[in-house]
Simulated scan of single mutants.
Amino acid sequence: MKVIITGACAVSARSVLRSLKMSPLFESTEFVGWDMCNLLYGVYEGIFDRIYKVPAVSDVSYRAVVEDILNKEKPDAVIVVPEVEVLYWSEYTFDVPYIVPPKEFSKLVISKERLFDALKDTRLVPKHITLTVNEIEDPSFINPLGFPVWIRDGAAGTASGKGAFKATCYDDLKAWVKINQGIMQFQLSEFLPGGNYGCFCLFKKGKLIKIAQAERIEYIMAKVAISGVTGNTSKGRLLNDELIKNTALDAISRLCQITGEEMNGLVVVDMKGDTNNIPIITEINIRHVAFSSSFASAGFNISEFQLLLALDRDNEISPEVEKFFPPYNLILRDVDGAPIYITEEKAFNIGESI
């Protein structure tokens, strides 16, 4: 069997690959990747059998290049990872097995502004406003959300906390806009001080197949980002939280009603807790995030489930929708190592070994 994973050099795609290599169902599979190859570590890491360099999805040559690769490699399935590629593949189909969220849903949630506007009459999303640089720098500007406020890049598909900052006053806003001169549109939203959560939801033909939740506790190299958020978790845990689960499913259901589509594929609903730690949705990713292989390490291989769905091998998927994790589990990640899953965190004292 041969499987292509797109966006192969990025952390999320490599997490998908690690997950699939844990699966006994795909242990003899040949894994091919493609990517723009800007992240050279991913190019030379050597975990794929081979990686092709492709143009950006926005490039006019993209389709011809990837179709040539598909014709040459003849994969049994493709797992599409980067959001901009998911968006493209949801609208412009290819003659190869794959499963992605539906077109209009993808177009809606890839923009935080459109997502928030679609759910603005609910308490599922934070209070928010999207502003241009000129609007923020206008001397007459008054922030309707008050302070503190969260400011970040408002462009579609942004990730890893790009342009993100907790502003405590108007001078903070102006200074942050001045520093981030490459960003032309910012989203301001109410500051949510609670926990940081991700809920993985896998669907096929409108049916929820698998769901799992995780909490991000600390971030890799957090000190280099003023916001303290780099988008890559160094410490986290796997959860079973009904409120987080129900919040994610409620939002997905409402959005599918708006778009009139049947839900398919994988989405990851990100949330932050408010002052009462009630989860509020901050974004919906139409792709894997780096927690994927941590779930696989804990015996809940979402990448395996997704590939089986794409191959129409649904009957090989275990029947449980959710796996229950030990209450004191821990996920640890570092720059130079694969994620570690610990079933129970234990304290140890000076002079003791562990």
Rank of each mutant, 00 (worst) to 15 (best):
T6G: 03
S12C: 05
A13W: 14
S15N: 07
K21N: 04
L25I: 00
W34Y: 11
V43D: 01
V43A: 05
Y44C: 13
E45R: 14
I51N: 14
Y52Q: 15
D59G: 05
D59I: 00
V60T: 08
I69D: 10
N71L: 14
K72D: 12
V80D: 12
L87G: 07
E91W: 03
D95E: 08
P97M: 06
V100K: 00
P101E: 09
K112A: 06
A118P: 03
K120D: 02
T130S: 14
T132M: 12
E135T: 00
E135Q: 08
I136M: 08
I142C: 07
W150S: 14
R152E: 05
A156G: 08
S160G: 09
A167V: 06
T168E: 15
Y170V: 02
Y170K: 11
K174W: 04
I179A: 01
N180D: 15
N180M: 15
M184P: 00
F191K: 04
L192S: 00
L192G: 02
C201L: 12
G206H: 12
A212L: 03
E215S: 03
I226A: 10
N232D: 08
K235W: 04
R237H: 06
R237D: 02
L238K: 02
T247K: 13
L249M: 03
D250R: 15
I252H: 05
I252P: 02
E262G: 10
G265D: 06
L266M: 11
D270A: 02
D274G: 13
N277M: 11
I281D: 01
F291N: 05
S292R: 01
F295E: 03
S297N: 09
Q306K: 05
L307P: 02
R313Q: 12
N315Y: 07
N315I: 04
I317C: 06
S318E: 15
E320G: 00
K323Y: 01
N329F: 03
D334N: 03
T343F: 01
T343A: 07
F348D: 00
N349A: 14
E352M: 11
E352H: 09
